[in-house]
Each structure stands twice: as C-alpha cells, then as structure tokens.
C-alpha cells in the first residue's frame, strides 16, 4: 500500500445539515501521484477539495495531513498546500510584484520552476495581471502554484478557460513539475484533458466512492479499444457507439496494452458501477 499524504477519516459534511453530501466518508490520497478526482456536476468534487484544504470544516470526522487536522489551518499545513480554485481574482500588480509579495510565504518557492513554466506558456514576468485574459490568468496562477513546491497541490477544473494549445502545455508543465514529494489532485469533469496525465483515478458521487484505483491497475485489468459494429459485444463490460463503430471496455485477460480512455471508463462506471468495481475488488 502506497504512503498517503491526506487521510480523510469518517467525514460528514453538507451545506445543509439535514441533507449531507458526505456521510461516514473515508479516503486516502496516495503520495507522489497525480490524482484525478472525477464526478458529475454537483457530485461534490470542489467541496471535497475545499475540505482537503481546510476551507470547509467537516461536521464530523477530520481530514489529516502530516498529522495535522487541516480544518485548523495551521501554518505548517497552509505553507504545504496550494489550491487553484475554479474562480479566482488576481490583484492589480505585475507578475513580478505579485511573486515578490506572495513567494515569501512559501519556504520552498522556486523561481526556476516559475520561469520555466512561464516560458512554456509564452508569458513574461512583466505582464500586468489584471489585464490578462481568463486563460492567461489561469496559466499564471498554475505556474505560481507549481513554483510554490508545496507537497499538496489542489487544482479545481484547471483546464476550464484554456485553449487547445494551452491544455497540452498545461499537461506538459504539470508532468515536468512532478516529484515524488509532490501530490496533485485535479478535480475536473473534462476528463479528456487529463487522462494521459493521471497516476490514480478517484471517482465520486457524493458519499459514494465509485472508483479509487491506480491507472496501472486499470490498464492491467481492463482493455480499452474500438471495434466494428458487426463484432458481437456480449463479452464486453461496456460499449458505447463511436465514429469508428463501437468503443468498448473488456477484461484484459490476454495482458494486452491499451491506452486508458477515461471518458469511456467514466461513462461505464456511471452506467453500472458494480460491474466495474467488481473487476478491482472481486
């Protein structure tokens, strides 16, 4: 079992106390991984990120990081977590001024990481933050987040607002910025943007964990492929019509190599969660 960076222990939370979103919810976030937190709209992805960062306090249970309850927002926790929310505002400063004012709060801040990330996105440190487009603001913020070198980086819908080239640049900077000490949790419903980046997949639907498995396990046990419409589908776990015929998921009994198709897996889990879950937890 891989070491975890965050432990969620018997958590209960709801915006309305009478209607809980999470109840007796427990989860371990593996250390050194890029974890994809997937779920439908309203499934509780952002809420879970806020609970993991201490921005929301659970009604019961706790979220522990390095032995600290994150809800207490201790200095040790705050300087080791960075969250990039879906909506954020940047002050009327140049990026250089912003970095000078904010980097001092992060003991492991790296100018080098920041510069290489900005270079990848084609941005300079002289940019005026309030005059950037939404996509550029996101690029800058993601670069700053990576440069803080915090152990836990939480990204809420990071590809929203990014154009097509920026999405691939985003994947590149994130992959290049990873170390064994860093853990990134990406919450998104745009699964196609991140499927080749992930080490671990976590699918939730409120209090239910639909799937919590490493990508290596998924590709070991499941085969993702295309087949003609005429080919019988009785032995497949999930079938979905596609431009080439049918996209299918079947058991990988012959140890074939295939590329994880996260969107297909996501739809398969939503369609019949027990069928997919049994593959990993017989």
């Amino acid at each position: 079992m891989k070491e975890s960076i965050v432990s969620i222990e018997n958590l209960a939370f709801g915006y309305n106390k009478k209607k809980l979103l999470f109840e007796d919810f427990s989860l371990e976030i593996p250390k050194g991984n890029i974890v994809g937190l997937l779920g439908r709209n309203g499934a509780g992805k952002s809420t879970l990120l806020y609970l993991m960062s201490g921005l929301l306090r659970p009604l019961k249970g706790r979220v522990v990081m390095d032995g600290y309850d994150v809800a207490q927002r201790k200095l040790a926790t705050l300087s080791d977590i960075f969250i990039v929310p879906e909506e954020f505002s940047l002050p009327r400063l140049t990026l250089m001024q912003f970095v000078r004012l904010y980097s001092v709060f992060y003991p492991r801040f790296s100018e080098q990481v920041l510069e290489s990330c900005l270079k990848e996105f084609g941005l300079s440190k002289d940019v005026q933050l309030d005059k950037l487009s939404m996509g550029q603001k996101k690029q800058v913020y993601v670069c700053f987040a990576l440069a803080t070198n915090t152990s836990l980086l939480l990204l809420d819908e990071p590809t929203n607002g990014l154009d097509i080239p920026s999405k691939s640049q985003f994947r590149k900077v994130l992959a290049s910025g990873m170390t064994d000490e860093k853990t990134v949790v990406i919450s998104t419903h745009q699964v196609k943007d991140i499927d080749r980046l992930l080490d671990h997949v976590l699918m939730i639907d409120g209090a239910n964990i639909l799937l919590d498995v490493p990508v290596s396990d998924i590709t070991d046990k499941l085969y993702f492929g295309e087949q003609a419409v005429s080919v019988p589908t009785e032995h497949v776990l999930y079938v979905q019509p596609s431009a080439q015929g049918n996209s299918i998921i079947r058991l990988n009994t012959d140890a074939e190599e295939s590329q994880l198709q996260l969107e297909l897996l996501f739809n398969a889990v939503l369609a019949d969660k027990e069928k997919i879950r049994k593959v990993f937890h017989p």
Binding site: L55, K74, F82, P85, E87, F88, S89
Partner: peptide, 16 residues
C-alpha cells in the same frame, strides 16, 4: 469578499 479572494486570503500561509 468574494469566493476567490476568500480562498486566497484564508489559504495564505500565516496564522489566524
């Protein structure tokens, strides 16, 4: 004031 600012301020590494 506002969710984005709130997150930024609450998550700044400094004690309450």
């Amino acid at each position: 004031s506002g969710r984005g600012k709130r997150i930024e301020f609450l998550m700044l590494p400094a004690t309450h």
